[in-house]
Amino acid sequence: RYTFRTRGPEQMKRVVEWARRQNLSYRVEVHGDEYIIHAE
């Protein structure tokens, strides 16, 4: 189980790509310009 905090969509997309390659399920929360990605 991982939690990532990123700023801006570019970093968020990179984390999502990584999670997909690992076959993890993930969800993204948006708080202003901060993205929180939960993957497991």
Rank of each mutant, 00 (worst) to 15 (best):
V16E: 04
H38E: 07
E17W: 07
G8W: 14
R20M: 13
Y35L: 04
R20E: 12
Y2E: 02
E40K: 08
T6N: 02
R7I: 08
E34Y: 14
G8S: 15
E29D: 06
R14Q: 11
V30R: 14
I37Q: 00
Q22K: 12
T3K: 07
Y2D: 01
T6F: 08
E29F: 12
M12V: 08
P9E: 15
E40T: 11
P9D: 12
W18V: 01
E34P: 00
R21Q: 13
R20T: 11
R7Q: 09
D33R: 07
Y26T: 09
I37P: 00
V16P: 00
V28L: 05
K13C: 13
R14I: 13
R14E: 09
H31A: 10
R7G: 04
R5Y: 13
E40P: 04
H38S: 06
R21I: 08
H31V: 14
H31Y: 12
R1T: 11
L24Q: 01
R21P: 00
I37L: 04
K13A: 13
A39C: 15
I36D: 01
R1G: 10
E29V: 10
E40G: 13
V30Y: 09
H31N: 12
Y35Q: 03
E17K: 07
R7V: 09
V30K: 14
E29H: 07
R21T: 11
R20V: 13
Q11W: 06
G8H: 15
V16Q: 03
E34W: 15
M12F: 10
E34V: 13
L24T: 01
H38A: 03
R14L: 13
Y2S: 03
D33C: 08
E10D: 11
E17C: 10
E29Q: 07
G32K: 05
R5Q: 04
H38T: 14
Y2L: 09
V15C: 11
Y26H: 03
E40W: 15
S25R: 13
E10F: 06
G8K: 15
M12S: 03
T3P: 02
E17H: 05
R1N: 08
R14A: 12
E40F: 15
L24I: 05
R27E: 08
Y2P: 02
Q11Y: 06
P9F: 15
E17A: 12
R27W: 15
E34M: 14
N23H: 11
H38Q: 06
A39E: 01
T3Y: 09
S25M: 11
A19S: 03
V15L: 10
D33F: 07
K13Y: 10
E10I: 09
Q22H: 15
R20P: 01
R27A: 06
W18E: 02
W18C: 06
I36H: 04
Q22A: 10
Q22D: 02
Y35I: 07
D33Y: 07
H31R: 12
G32A: 06
A39D: 00
R27H: 11
G8M: 14
Y35E: 01
R5P: 02
E34I: 14
A19Q: 00
Y26L: 08
E29R: 05
N23T: 03
A39L: 15
T6G: 05
S25E: 09
V28K: 00
A19L: 15
K13L: 14
R14D: 04
W18L: 02
V16Y: 02
D33H: 08
Q22G: 05
R21S: 14
Y35V: 05
Q22L: 14
H38L: 09
E29N: 04
G8P: 01
E29A: 05
N23S: 08
I36G: 00
E10W: 07
T6H: 02
Q22S: 10
R27N: 07
R1M: 09
D33K: 08
R7M: 07
R20F: 05
V15G: 01
Y26S: 03
S25D: 09
R5M: 07
R7P: 04
A39W: 11
V28W: 04
R20N: 07
I36T: 05
Q22V: 06
A39F: 15
M12T: 06
G8Q: 14
E17D: 11
Y2I: 09
R5V: 13
R27T: 14
R14V: 11
F4T: 01
H38I: 14
M12Q: 02
D33A: 08
I37M: 03
P9V: 15
H31M: 12
D33L: 08
S25K: 13
G8F: 15
V15F: 12
V16T: 06
P9K: 15
Y35K: 02
G8E: 15
G32M: 06
E17F: 06
H31G: 03
Q11A: 14
H38V: 13
T6R: 04
A19V: 13
V28P: 01
G32C: 04
Y2H: 05
L24K: 03
R5F: 10
Q11D: 10
A39P: 00
N23Q: 10
D33S: 09
R21G: 08
E17G: 05
E34T: 12
E34F: 14
K13V: 07
R27K: 10
R1S: 12
R27S: 12
R20H: 06
A39G: 02
A19P: 00
V15I: 15
D33W: 06
E29W: 11
K13F: 10
Y2K: 04
S25P: 05
I37A: 00
E17R: 10
Y35W: 10
R21F: 06
V28Y: 03
S25I: 14
P9Q: 13
H31W: 11
